[in-house]
């Protein structure tokens, strides 16, 4: 150790101690939430850090009061529709930009680029009345349709398509593959890791949407998990541990999904994902 006066063992121990302390700090809110959700309402002030008086009644009550079963179904359906649609629209439009020659390509690409500069928060005022005029308040269409395509997805997939060698397209043409055949047999399989990241990212950002569902779901039956949680929090403001039990129910599925798909998530976030 030419550069340090401290022995290596001590430094390692210091690093691990710090890591453990920080782990406790980061996980602290999650732990308090879990403990709170497992207590009956009249014991919420007792041992807030320890799982005593464990009961599932609070979770059950939150599930019922918040109509969370229905909200989970709604969120799943909407997120799946949006995910599939985003991948499909991204692949199609990216293919057109990467492999097809047509007049005005640069201009249309510029239009796509411009939509990235518009924050969703600035368009909700008008989108709400559009959806209302279409009669789509409280519906799956209303929750999903504004998000069926994103310029972000188009860019991400186009980047991958542009890295494919030109010879590949030529060889495929020799083999008699048209554009659609080439797209299906060659381009999409080669872009699969990126498409996986895009899919996970689309699913997560749809699942986590807050402003949109709270704006257009006015009926309890059309809440997503996020707007359902908001409704529960506002209706049961005097029962903090009922609300926190609802929070656990909403948080749990996403924690599990992310543990499984960690790698895709890292790829999606570091690719320049901006919507949270």
């Amino acid at each position: 150790m030419a550069t340090s006066t401290m022995p290596r063992g001590w430094r390692l121990a210091g690093r691990y101690t710090l890591l453990i302390v920080l782990t406790i700090v980061v996980l602290f809110p999650i732990w308090v939430m879990l403990v709170g959700a497992l207590k009956p309402g009249n014991k919420v002030l007792q041992d807030p850090l320890l799982p005593t008086h464990v009961t599932f009644d609070t979770l059950r009550e939150a599930w019922r009061d918040g109509n969370l079963g229905r909200a989970l179904v709604n969120s799943t359906i909407v997120a799946l529709i949006v995910t599939v649609a985003q991948v499909v629209t991204a692949v199609l439009s990216a293919y057109a930009f990467a492999f097809l020659r047509f007049p005005g390509r640069t201009f249309v690409f510029g239009v796509f680029l411009a939509t990235l500069l518009v924050p969703f928060e600035a368009t909700v005022v008008v989108n709400r009345s559009t959806v209302q005029d279409l009669g789509w308040l409280n519906s799956y269409q209303g929750l999903a349709v504004p998000f069926l395509a994103t310029a972000f997805g188009t860019f991400l997939v186009r980047q991958v398509f542009l890295t494919l060698p030109k010879d590949l397209r030529e060889a495929a043409r020799m083999d008699g593959l048209g554009h659609l055949g080439f797209l299906r047999e060659v381009a999409v399989p080669l872009a699969r890791p990126t498409l996986g990241a895009l899919a996970l990212f689309g699913f997560l950002s749809t699942w986590n949407q807050y402003l949109w569902p709270t704006t257009i779901s006015t009926d309890d039956d059309w809440n997503t998990v996020q707007s359902g949680l908001r409704a529960l929090a506002q209706a049961q403001i005097d029962k903090p541990n009922l609300v926190i039990a609802g929070t656990v129910i909403v948080a749990l599925p996403i924690f599990v999904i992310l543990l499984v798909f960690q790698r895709q998530l890292v790829r999606g976030l570091t690719a320049g994902a901006v919507k949270g």
């Binding site: 629209t89 249309v108 518009v118 368009t123 008008v126 559009t130 504004p146 998000f147 395509a149 188009t154």
Partner: peptide
């Protein structure tokens, strides 16, 4: 498909 969605829910509302 992308143009319709982006036009109707991003550019038009802006």
């Amino acid at each position: 498909p992308s143009l319709i969605v982006l036009g109707a829910f991003v550019l038009y509302p802006l």
